[in-house]
Nucleic acid binder design. Structure first.
Length: 284
DNA sequence: CTAGGATCCTGTCAGC
DNA sequence: TGCTGACAGGATCCTA
């Protein structure tokens, strides 16, 4: 479930609390689920973290010994750091505050001064160990398109023409078309641009695509300000659980409610096999 | 090449 | 109280 803003929030959070001084060296790696950890994990023992990068929804952890971790959370992945400081992000659920490791812990990386847990209910996510200089050659990383901040409306318009027969929504979920949007921000960006998710990609005008790219930037920036789905907004100050979607979502999970813009009723339908939320009255 | 559906996996929820 | 089917913030693989 984590999309670009969640991964960026995790990147910023872990960068603060997993510095070499605060985390130390890797002592031990345990893969409770073999398919969740690809590569030879003896390669990373003894290394410390140099930097956290991100490409789209992939987190790249650069280590001090020439190796890197490519981490993709897919639908239900979470990264939870327990050390002097604590940080948790990704799929929001009770694992953020649970005793770890638990049943959904797939990988545990123990450092001198703390432990990083990779939890993942559905096992779609993964951590992959690759030499740092080969990260760019990774099959997934290599195919990624630009993020909305680097992409012009004209570029996206031309890409949409190549998929002109498909509904626009599944096309903007394709990471080789535009990078970073997932099911939430695709719906939110289309709402911003007043485009119905069912429109054929080839029938969206260049001016509309321009708005769509702007919408993608705006909705993801708003989410970043709200902190994505992290422990801070999952567990509110009073100890109750919060829903970070409430902080910014205009259509996602708001079916049956009123559109803020026109007062129409937000509906939920299925487009390209994915649950899709929109306002039929103002998204044309 | 594109379009659309099945698939990987676990857990939760609505309906009977 | 079961049981069943639908669904889930992702991406890939297969078929036509």
């Amino acid at each position: 479930m984590p999309e670009l803003p969640e991964v960026e929030t995790i990147r910023r959070g872990l960068r603060e609390c997993m510095t070499p001084a605060k985390a130390g060296k890797i002592l031990r790696v345990t893969a409770f689920e073999p398919k969740s950890l690809m590569g030879d994990f003896s390669e990373i023992v003894g290394a410390e973290v140099q930097e956290f990068d991100r490409r789209g929804k992939a987190l790249i952890v650069r280590l001090s010994n020439g190796q890197s971790l490519i981490i993709h959370l897919r639908m239900t992945g979470q990264l939870i750091w327990r050390g002097e400081e604590e940080f948790a992000g990704g799929h929001p659920n009770d694992n953020f505050i649970a005793a770890l490791p638990n049943k959904q812990t797939r990988v545990e990386i123990e450092f001198e001064k703390g432990t990083l847990f990779f939890n993942d209910q559905r096992k779609f996510g993964f951590i992959k160990i690759v030499p740092t200089e080969k990260v760019g050659e990774d099959a997934f990383i290599r195919k990624l398109a630009k993020e909305p901040w680097e992409m012009t409306g004209k570029e996206l318009y031309e890409k949409l023409q190549r998929h002109r027969g498909s509904a626009v929504k599944p096309v903007i979920l394709d990471q080789t078309v535009i990078c970073g949007l997932g099911n939430i921000y695709a719906d939110e960006a289309l709402y911003f641009a007043e485009i119905a998710p069912t429109r054929k990609a080839g029938e969206v005008s260049e001016a509309e695509v321009e708005r769509l790219v702007e919408g993608a930037r705006v909705v993801m920036e708003r989410s970043l300000e709200a902190g994505g789905s992290t422990i801070r907004n999952y567990v509110k100050a009073d100890g109750t659980k919060g829903d970070y979607l409430e902080l910014f979502a205009k259509v996602f999970n708001r079916q049956g409610k009123k559109c803020e813009r026109c007062g129409g009723e937000i509906v939920k339908i299925k487009v390209g096999g994915r649950g899709t939320h929109y306002c039929p009255q103002c998204q044309k």
